[in-house]
Every structure is written in structure tokens, then in C-alpha cells.
Nucleic acid binder design. Structure first.
Length: 563
RNA sequence: GUCCCCGUAGCUCAGUUGGAUAGAGCGACUGCCUCCUAAGCAGUAGGUCGCAGGUUCGAUUCCUGCCGGGGACGCCA
């Protein structure tokens, strides 16, 4: 639009009043009666100029050269707002950019091609993925999408904690079930895993190895249990994730940090910083020097490292691989790790605040206000796979993304199962599909719909103006959502825009109001409305693409399939 | 006790460089309608923005304190 022109006009007016170098910020008022663009410069300058804001606003308004800058009208309102109205041609000109950019509309190069790693999910291979992992996956993937769209070179990374005490508990749990399989009385150890899947793994071991390990609890037996369990569970998690349409560029194994000696060398490096001390037989890092609540143990008195040490080694590795920006998506219950990992890498010379964390709260599934738990395969929790099977991938992803990460998420199962456009996901998808169906009805390939020779100024109804304004906000929105690490802003935008689209579409229902239909008789108007429809389709599709959600050309309901 | 997050309409939630009459969906209520395929559409009601101070021309937004909910405070991850 003509934001730049208005800024210049205001600055020119201000110069006439003896005020130089003012940053004029324009925003779109919520209420369309306040014009298309507005500024609060008069309010901001009141103090500096020692004059009432209203008087300043009026003087600016009177000095604005509306003709030179092609401004339709300017007015003063409230305590001193300056409101500008644009011609419908100026508003509608935004469509040209949308259609020209197509798949790339909304992209920017803010990241300048710099590398950034987004680590998420990073579940231990000790059981099926649960809803917390699902939310983390959906948020992390959307964040990666946002960064990609804003010009970063993004790597999606998964850190497998395949070493350490948790895995030992898993191996012991499988061992116990294996013994039980052969009728021996063995109990799952304290802190072990109770889920049904442990028994399934034990049964498969019994099938493969027979009773070879009955009553035997040595290195080899536990090693086989461990290896089989980890391999099985990793394969299962990988399948869940790929069905959830999440794909990682790098799978990083914690065990590799032990194998190549980097855990040990990290201790040595940290000792070299002078921030390390020995106490009670353990090795500590003085993380309080970097703002942590208390100092942390790196090497336990039994000589084994805590998880903290490989974590530091891992993040040093990220940096050394060229990722000078890193985002870790984690459950809020892990927030204690933030300060200590940051302290650890800072001690080794990395800048404060590396890596950056996005913490998310937990998920609760409800139907009619009551908590719903699906199955018991995993023991006490609902798995991601179960929820996906129940409501579908698009709905699951969207619901996980539509709330800001640091708020608790109530997953409304009744709403998720609703296939009308009460369901926010379907609302957006319907709006997209409706545009596609118009193109089909018109007998046009959507790529053939353009703005060449089309007079867009005929898009002059209030609904059309507001819709176009919403569409042209998309690039700013994407940039902002990426900066704020806030995928939910994309959801909000899509829902709001889809609402505007749907009412515009319905208002043009040919049986009721043929003059407002896209496919009107008048060639000029039809061409312009087709271009608008095409713009809508592009923006909705691009928004959904960032989130990793399908933009269908046609909606298929369950009963259509059944019938 | 210390630290982090949250507290906005009956419910679920938006609202970031502080701006006009605080928004959306669900639910409720009132009308319409069978359509450019969509169990749909249009509208109405509903608010001391947790409480109390402070900063400001202006605070849901920033600061302080308090109350309420969740989480973390391990030589677990």
C-alpha cells in the first residue's frame, strides 16, 4: 500500500512546523471508521513541543499535501490521532504483490541466510511419544517453518538421550518382563517402566532368543535387552513422528558424545576455566557465577557424569558446527536445565543466553469439561499416536500450535472432532477450498489468474477493503511471529482472516445476492474478484504451509467417505 | 522459602516496541436460509482485563507488592 507516501507526507508537514527527524509509525486501526492507517505522532510530540496533542494533530493535518502524496483524506480524531483513508485502488493494489509472489508471499530475508538449529521432541527412547512430545513437535516444526520463511537456514534436530540411567532402567524393566514371560518372579525396578510395550519387547526377545537369558542378569543379557528396547522404541517414535509429518535433518545420539570422548574432554575444558571444584567426591561447576540458582554436579561421586555434562558438550558441538543461533523447545518442567546449560557453555566462552529456550506447558485432553484418557498401552498416559488416530494429523498439529507455548493447553476433543467450520482448522481449510472451488467453477487454472489488465479499484465494498487489508498484513505477521517465536499468532491470523473470507464468500451467495458473487456477469468485476480470491487462496495456503498443515482444494467429510 | 509460567466474556483463549468504544471461537439467545458443493448465514447479550499502589497526556500492556493456579528447586532426564 502507500504507507511510505503517508509517512513522507507527515514528515514533510512536520518539517514545515520545524520538527525534523521524527519516526512516523503507522498502524491499522481496529475500527475501519478510523481510516485505513493511523499515527500517534501528535500525541508523542505533545510534550516535546509543549502544545496540546489535538492542536498539533490539526496543524499536521492542515499541512498535509494530500494531492502530492495521493492521499484520499486525512482527519483528526480522539485525543490527537491522525487517520488516513486510502482510495480503493490503493488498498487493492496490495493484491498485485500477493499474486506475483505466490508461493513466496510472506517470506523475507530477515535471517540473512544465517544458520539456526531448532532442537525439539528429543524424547528418551524409553516409551511411546506422549501428548507433550506432540505439542513440542508441532510447535518446534512450526517454529522451524517460521524461521525458514524469514530467511534463516534452519536445521531441525533431535537429541536422543540413548545413554545414562533412564536407559538402564528400561533395560532392567525389559529384563524383568522377560523373566516373567518364563514364569519367574521378578519385579520391575524402582523408577522402571510399567507400560505394556515393555512386555511386548520382552515377548519379542523371548521369541528371538528363547529362554537363553532366563535367570541370567549379566552384561550381555542386559546389553541385549537395552539394544533391542532402544532400537524398537526409536523405530516406533520415528514412525510416529513421520506420520505426524515431522522430519528431522539431524538425529544426534547422546551416546556418540561418550563414544568419541567429548564428555571427558568437556570436563577437562571446564576444569581449565577455574569454575570447577570438587566436593564430597563429586565434580561441580560453579554455575552460580552465571546466574544459576545453585552450583551443579557434573560428575557424580561414583565417577559417572550427570546429564548436564553431555548437554554442555552437545551445545558446544552445535556452536562448533556453525549454529550461532540455537533454539531448544522443551517442556516447562525442564526449565531448570536452562540456566545450567547456558552457564556451562558460557564458561567455555559462548555468549550469554546461548542456547535460547522455548518452553511449553503440558496438554490436557477434555471432553465436556472432563479429562479424557485414551488407552493404556503406555501405562499412565495418552500417546500421540492415539490422538492422531482419533482426530487426524492436521487437527492435532493445529490444536497444539494454536495456543502460546507457555500457556497450558486444554485440548477440546469435541471441538477437534467437529467437522464443520466451528473447528478452527476446518474453518481455515474450508475457506481455502472454497476459493479453489470458485476457480473450478469458473473453469480456470488458478495459476492463470492474475492482475494484468484488471482494474482492482472496483473492489470497493467494506468487506473487500478489509479483507485485502488483512491479506497484506501477512508478511509483517510472519516476521513478527518468527521474532517472537510464536506460531500461535499464525493460527490467530488464519482464523480471523478465514472468518472474513467466509463471510465475504457467503454474502456473495448467488441465490441471495448475485451482485456480490465472485462470478458476476460484469467481466471487470469478476476479474478483480477472481484476483482477490486467488490472493486469499495464496495467503491461506502459505500460512498453513508454515504450520505444516494441508491446504486442501476440496474438503472430504467422514460421512462422504462412509456414504 | 527461592525461581519460572499463567490469572482478560459462562468456557477455551488472542491482544509486544503503552494508544481511540479491550477482541475471537465455543456455549446461550433471536431471526433467516439450502446455497460460487460444505449440518449453513446474519445478528444480540455477555467484561471492576486477579487485587492494590506507582510511572504517563494515556496502562490489559511497563515497575513494585499481594492473592490465586501450575511447574521447578536431585550426585534423575
Amino acid at each position: 500500500m502507500s504507507e511510505e507516501a503517508i509517512k513522507q507526507a507527515v514528515q514533510q508537514a512536520l518539517r514545515g512546523m520545524g520538527v525534523e527527524d521524527v519516526d512516523v509509525r503507522l498502524d491499522q486501526p481496529r475500527d475501519p471508521s478510523h481510516g485505513d492507517l493511523a499515527t500517534t505522532v501528535a500525541l508523542t510530540l505533545a510534550k516535546e513541543l509543549g502544545r496540546p496533542p489535538l492542536a498539533i494533530a490539526e496543524e499536521i493535518a492542515s499541512r498535509i499535501d494530500t494531492e502530492r502524496f495521493a492521499i484520499e483524506s486525512v482527519s483528526v480524531a480522539g485525543p490527537g490521532f491522525l487517520n488516513f483513508k486510502l482510495s480503493s485502488g490503493q488498498v487493492a493494489s496490495g493484491i498485485v504483490d500477493i499474486i506475483a509472489a505466490d508461493d513466496d508471499y510472506g517470506r523475507c530475508d530477515e535471517g540473512g541466510g544465517e544458520s539456526i538449529v531448532v532442537e525439539f521432541v528429543s524424547a528418551n527412547p524409553t516409551g511411546p511419544l506422549h501428548l507433550g512430545h506432540g505439542r513440542q513437535g508441532a510447535i518446534g516444526d512450526a517454529l522451524a517453518g517460521l524461521l525458514d520463511w524469514t530467511g534463516w537456514s534452519v536445521s531441525r534436530e533431535y537429541y536422543y538421550n540413548d545413554a545414562g540411567a533412564q536407559i538402564d532402567r528400561l533395560a532392567e524393566s525389559v529384563w524383568a518382563r522377560y523373566q516373567q514371560h518364563f514364569g519367574r518372579e521378578e519385579e520391575i525396578p524402582e523408577g522402571g517402566y510399567q507400560g505394556k510395550y515393555v512386555g511386548e519387547i520382552a515377548a519379542s526377545l523371548a521369541e528371538e532368543h528363547g529362554d537363553r537369558f532366563v535367570g541370567i542378569r549379566d552384561e550381555e543379557a542386559l546389553g541385549v535387552m537395552r539394544e533391542t528396547a532402544v532400537r524398537t522404541l526409536r523405530a516406533e517414535q520415528d514412525l510416529d513422528l513421520s506420520d505426524f509429518r515431522i522430519h528431522f535433518d539431524v538425529y544426534f545420539l547422546e551416546s556418540s558424545l561418550y563414544d568419541d570422548g567429548r564428555v571427558v574432554s568437556t570436563v577437562e575444558a571446564l576444569r581449565g576455566t577455574g569454575k570447577v571444584f570438587d566436593l564430597d567426591g563429586a565434580v561441580w561447576l560453579r554455575t552460580t557465577d552465571y546466574g544459576d540458582q545453585k552450583d551443579r554436579v557434573m560428575v557424580k561421586s561414583d565417577g559417572s557424569p550427570t546429564y548436564f555434562l553431555p548437554d554442555v558438550a552437545y551445545h558446544m558441538d552445535k556452536w562448533e558446527r556453525g549454529f550461532h543461533h540455537a533454539i531448544n523447545v522443551q517442556g516447562a518442567d525442564h526449565h531448570g536445565t536452562m540456566a545450567r546449560v547456558q552457564a556451562g557453555v558460557q564458561a567455555l566462552g559462548l555468549p550469554a543466553g546461548y542456547p535460547e529456550y522455548v518452553l511449553h506447558q503440558m496438554v490436557r485432553v477434555e471432553r465436556d469439561g472432563k479429562e479424557v484418557k485414551f488407552s493404556k498401552r503406555a501405562g499412565s498416559y495418552t500417546t500421540l499416536r492415539e490422538l492422531m488416530a482419533e482426530v487426524g494429523v492436521d487437527v492435532t498439529r493445529y490444536f497444539f500450535q494454536m495456543r502460546k507455548p507457555d500457556a497450558h493447553l486444554v485440548f477440546d476433543l469435541a471441538l477437534a472432532l467437529d467437522q464443520s467450520d466451528k473447528n478452527p482448522v476446518y474453518k481455515v481449510q474450508y475457506a481455502h477450498a472454497r476459493m479453489c472451488s470458485i476457480f473450478k467453477k469458473a473453469g480456470l487454472e488458478r495459476s492463470s489468474i492474475g492482475t494484468d489488465g484488471v482494474d482492482l479499484s472496483v473492489l470497493a465494498t467494506d468487506a473487500e477493503r478489509e479483507l485485502i487489508k488483512a491479506l497484506t498484513q501477512f508478511p509483517d505477521l510472519v516476521r513478527n511471529a518468527a521474532r517472537l517465536r510464536a506460531p500461535h499468532l499464525i493460527c490467530d491470523y488464519l482464523e480471523q482472516t478465514a472468518g472474513a473470507v467466509n463471510s465475504w464468500y457467503h454474502a456473495g451467495n448467488p441465490s441471495r445476492n448475485p451482485k456480490l458473487a465472485v462470478l458476476v456477469e460484469d467481466d471487470g468485476l469478476r476479474g478483480a474478484r477472481l484476483a482477490l480470491s486467488r490472493s486469499v487462496q495464496i495467503v491461506l495456503r502459505n500460512g498453513l504451509t508454515i504450520l505444516g498443515i494441508m491446504a486442501p482444494e476440496q474438503m472430504i467429510r467422514d460421512e462422504d467417505v462412509a456414504g
